[in-house]
C-alpha cells in the first residue's frame, strides 16, 4: 500500500504485564456490500493472517475472516516484557497486500 504504515502500535508497561494494542487501517470488505452509486458488489478484501511477535518470537498467530471490523483493533498482554523489547506486527490480506511494523516498548 502507500508509503505510510497501515499499522499503529501502542504499548504500556505494567509491573506484571505489558499491554500491546494495535490498530490497522484496512477496509475489511466482506464482498457483500454494494457500491452506493453503481450498485455493483464491492469485491471482498480482508486481512487473512496477522502475526504478533515479541523479540522475533511468535506470540500469536491470528487467522480471520471478514467478520472482523473495518480498521481492525487487537490487544494482547505479554506476561514478561521489558522496556526496549521489540514488538512486530504484520498482516497479509486476500489480495496479497501485506504490511509489517516494529515497535519498541517504552
Amino acid at each position: 500500500m502507500a508509503n505510510r504504515s497501515t499499522i499503529k502500535i501502542r504499548s504500556k508497561h505494567f509491573p506484571d504485564y505489558t499491554l500491546v494494542r494495535t490498530l490497522i487501517a484496512h477496509t475489511m470488505e466482506t464482498g457483500r456490500n454494494k457500491n452506493q452509486d453503481t450498485k455493483a458488489l464491492i469485491p471482498a478484501h480482508f486481512i487473512q493472517t496477522l502475526s504478533f511477535k515479541h523479540n522475533d518470537k511468535v506470540m500469536s498467530e491470528c487467522h480471520m475472516g471478514f467478520g472482523i471490523s473495518k480498521n481492525p483493533y487487537f490487544s494482547f498482554k505479554i506476561k514478561q516484557a521489558n522496556p526496549g523489547d521489540k514488538i512486530t506486527i504484520s498482516w497479509k490480506d486476500n489480495l496479497g497486500f501485506s504490511d509489517s511494523k516494529d515497535h519498541i516498548i517504552q
Partner: peptide, 25 residues
Amino acid sequence: KNPVPLIAKFTLDPSLETYIGARFK
C-alpha cells in the same frame, strides 16, 4: 447468526496472558 460464523482464531503462546481484545461484526 453471521453468514460466516467463524470470526477469527488465535494461537496463544504460553508467555502471553490469556487476554485478547478485538472488534468484530
